[in-house]
């Protein structure tokens, strides 16, 4: 839960729309809704790898895995579960 909140705060701090234009929900596709631009995809990837100490493999580089808070958490849960 703490990780999810941390992730939400990171995405919220990188929105390219004003706060009142974005009601960020866990299943929102942040790219399709225009909340972030494509440059953010790299920033998000670097953040996830460094902040959560995981290595995202090439086969996991599907934008769907990073398109919403829930999708990112699902990937993280899988990665951290494997790690444990």
């Amino acid at each position: 839960m703490q990780q999810k909140e941390q992730l939400r705060q990171f995405i919220a701090s990188n929105l390219i729309v004003f706060e009142d234009e974005a009601d960020l929900k866990d299943d929102d596709n942040i790219f399709q809704l225009g909340y972030v631009n494509s440059l953010f995809a790299m920033k998000l990837l670097n953040y996830i790898e460094s902040e959560f100490d995981v290595k995202i493999e090439t086969e996991e580089m599907d934008i769907k895995n990073f398109s919403s808070i829930n999708n990112i958490m699902a990937l993280l849960d899988k990665k951290l579960g494997v790690k444990e």
């Binding site: 995809a41 090439t58 580089m61």
Partner: peptide, 13 residues
């Protein structure tokens, strides 16, 4: 990289 990741990841990198 991954098929489909050409723009988001490779081009941006």
């Amino acid at each position: 990289g991954n098929e489909g990741g050409g723009f988001t990841y490779v081009v941006n990198t």
